[in-house]
Design a protein around this nucleic acid. Structure first.
Length: 603
RNA sequence: GCCGACGUAGCUCAAUCGGCAGAGCACCCGCCUUGUAAGCGGGCGGUUACGAGUUCGAUUCUCGUCGUCGGCUCCA
């Protein structure tokens, strides 16, 4: 699905505009720094970038100057001219451009594209020229620079980026720009960015009092406020219901373990860098756990298992700690302490397909519940070059397991895309990319097939023939971590949660202090019915109380004045602004309880 | 971790060229008794992230540390 969208984009006029804008920008930069070495500058979603190796760092003022010069260049109506050249000719043209020479080398010798990925066939080498600027480029471009409207592009930011995306390579300066067909489109896009800011989970999380970060506590270590605590309880309740129905058992394991466990599991050599360093006591090293699986393996191995016992599904929402690099932290989406929606399924090969698809089925149920309409399942595979380094060194098992997953997905009729060199070290996985209501992309759910670690733990079960057999293990986290899930939901709903997930479900608002007691009484009755409610008996006026409740995105407000109190009724104001006057409390309670029980989307 | 930008009251932001740090909201205290998104008045609140340096004098200039943000890299 996304594949098709991308192909279309690459053929679009907008794609050409952006690609051409990147060239124009490169011209402006090279004019400013004649000694600049330029690398690649492709169109991307919403715009384009170009990476440069420059004698000094760019400042925001430089960006303004570059943008200004670009406006002059595009007005010049310079034609984009393509010329096919031989490798040798290309090398002459770009004799003083080392990065271009490296690219030409790649194209010439066996076909590597500008990102260093292998190409199927040897491509022709072409150059594009407009005005004074010549670039090694396969196109396509617009006819002339006039097609880039001077009021329809904008340079957005400058950032560091490694040459060919490898952190061992030199870091270049990347300028990001956005470009559109006309001014209106640009303005719409900029407006969209503003709207997205309003939905930013970090902003909403603070405003709705869901979570905070405290410098003294530490980066990436969120503190969950009471409202966030309620949400986590609700999400765990949901997960427990689903998992109980699907035959999972709940276990609990400690936050610390001896080093030996992670040596045995094989995690330590792969992931030591992203684990908190060990603490040593009486000569023994202990690690804070970055994942639950080794301990679940120990639980599986704690007694003899028969094929009749399988599958065994062990679930735990344990808090794990990972030392993510400082620059990788991002609000709740990337943290160092996380509560995983974790479980490990131990099964035989025969049971694999059913178990694997059971997890995929769980995904679909969650997506439906949260109204997630756009998602892509990514089947992440190993790469031969990484065997024995990034990946367990057993190619036969890799191919076999990957094939099992492929077959399961195909038989289940679930569409997916394949991604090479993205697997876990112990097996292939399915990662699910999802898009929030404003179209931002996240990686949420994941499940992995583990054909390697159970053996390292000597896990086995007795099969029908009375022989020992090693079980397969499926690691799965359909709801990701509580942190990432809440972050996603904040943005997805813009904080307007369905009733079941709202930290505060009802606020009772007395009009004058004459109804305070009546309001408190109503709130008590609501709480007795299992509804999260409180009365606002502050000295503010009704309008201010309504505003407060609206700002906190409380789904239901019950306004009570003298009239309601005399008649024993309530007036309902729903978060969407609609009103329903003078209804019996029991009627409202029935409505709220129904929505909550169904985890309904509507209020 | 790397490149860049930023850090002023709980929150959102102001402070000219280096010259006594300010507003709104929130909070506290009063008055108002109110009908579906902010009633009025007063008060409290700061080692300008932290630590050095330059200067008669630093929120402002320089360096370092910490943190946040935009990217890169990474994500068991």
């Amino acid at each position: 699905m996304s594949q098709q969208v991308q192909e279309k984009y690459e053929e679009s006029h907008l794609y050409r505009i952006r690609h051409s804008a990147a060239h124009v920008m490169a011209q402006a930069v090279v004019e400013m720094f004649p000694e600049a070495k330029y690398t690649i500058g492709p169109p991307v979603e919403n715009g384009f970038y170009y990476d440069f190796d420059l004698p000094r760092n760019l400042t925001p003022e430089d960006l303004e100057a570059i943008e200004k010069r670009m406006r002059q260049i595009v007005q010049g109506k310079h034609e984009f001219r393509k010329t096919v050249v031989s490798a040798n000719e290309a090398k002459k043209i770009f004799a003083d451009q080392p990065y271009k020479l490296e690219l030409i080398e790649g194209l010439e010798t066996g076909g590597f594209d500008e990102y260093g990925n292998p190409l199927e066939e040897k491509p022709e080498i072409s150059i594009y020229q407009h005005d004074t600027f010549v670039d090694l480029c396969r196109g396509p471009h617009v006819e002339n620079t006039r097609e880039i409207k001077p009021d329809a592009f904008k340079l957005m930011s400058v950032a560091g980026a490694y040459w060919r995306g490898d952190e061992n390579n030199k870091q270049l300066q990347r300028i990001y720009g956005t470009a559109w067909e006309n001014k209106k489109q640009l303005e719409e896009y900029l407006h969209q960015l503003e709207e997205a800011k309003k939905r930013d989970h970090r902003k909403l999380g603070r405003e709705l009092e869901i979570f905070i970060f405290e410098e003294e506590v530490g980066p990436g270590l969120p503190l969950w406020l009471p409202n966030g605590g309620v949400m986590i309880e609700e999400l765990e309740k949901l997960a427990k219901e689903m998992e109980e129905a699907a035959g999972y058992d709940r276990v609990r394991t400690p936050n610390l373990t001896k080093e030996d466990l992670f040596i045995r599991s094989g995690h330590l050599p792969y992931y030591a860098e992203s684990m908190y360093p060990p603490m040593e006591l009486e000569g023994v090293k202990y690690y804070v756990k970055p994942m639950n699986c080794p301990m679940h393996h120990k639980i599986f191995g704690s007694k003899l298992r028969s094929y009749r016992d399988l599958p065994i599904r062990l679930a735990e929402y344990g808090t794990c700690y990972r030392y993510e690099k400082s620059g990788e932290l991002f609000g709740l989406m990337r943290v160092r302490s996380m509560q995983m929606n974790d479980a490990h399924i131990y099964c035989s090969e025969d049971q694999f397909e059913q178990e694997f698809m059971g997890v995929i089925d769980l995904y679909h149920k969650y997506f439906e519940l949260f109204g997630i309409e756009k998602y892509v399942m990514r089947l992440s595979l190993h790469a031969r070059a990484g065997l024995g380094k990034k990946y367990v060194d057993n190619e036969r098992l890799w191919l076999k397991t990957e094939d099992m997953v492929r077959r399961a997905m195909d038989n289940g009729g679930v569409p997916y895309v394949e991604r090479e060199d993205e697997a876990a070290f112990y097996g292939p996985k399915i990662d699910v990319q999802i898009w929030s209501a404003i179209g931002r992309e996240f990686s949420l759910a994941t499940n992995q097939v583990d054909f390697a670690v159970p053996e390292r733990f000597d896990l086995k079960f007795t099969n029908k023939d009375g022989h020992d057999e090693v079980p397969l293990c499926i690691h799965r986290a359909p709801l990701s971590t509580h942190e990432r899930l809440v972050g996603f939901l904040l943005e997805h709903y813009a904080g307007n949660f369905p009733v079941w997930l709202s930290p505060e479900q009802v606020r009772v608002i007395p009009i004058t202090d004459g109804q305070n007691e009546y309001a408190e009484n109503i709130a008590r009755q609501l709480r007795a019915s299992g509804i999260r409610a409180r009365a606002d008996v502050s000295s503010q006026r009704m309008n201010a109380k309504i505003r407060d409740a609206q700002m906190m995105k409380v789904p239901y407000m019950l306004v009570v004045g003298d009239k309601e109190m005399q008649a024993g009724l309530v007036s309902l104001r729903v978060r969407d602004g609609s009103q329903q006057k003078d209804i019996p409390l029991a009627e409202f309670i029935a409505r709220a309880k129904d929505r909550i029980a169904k985890r309904a989307k509507e209020l």
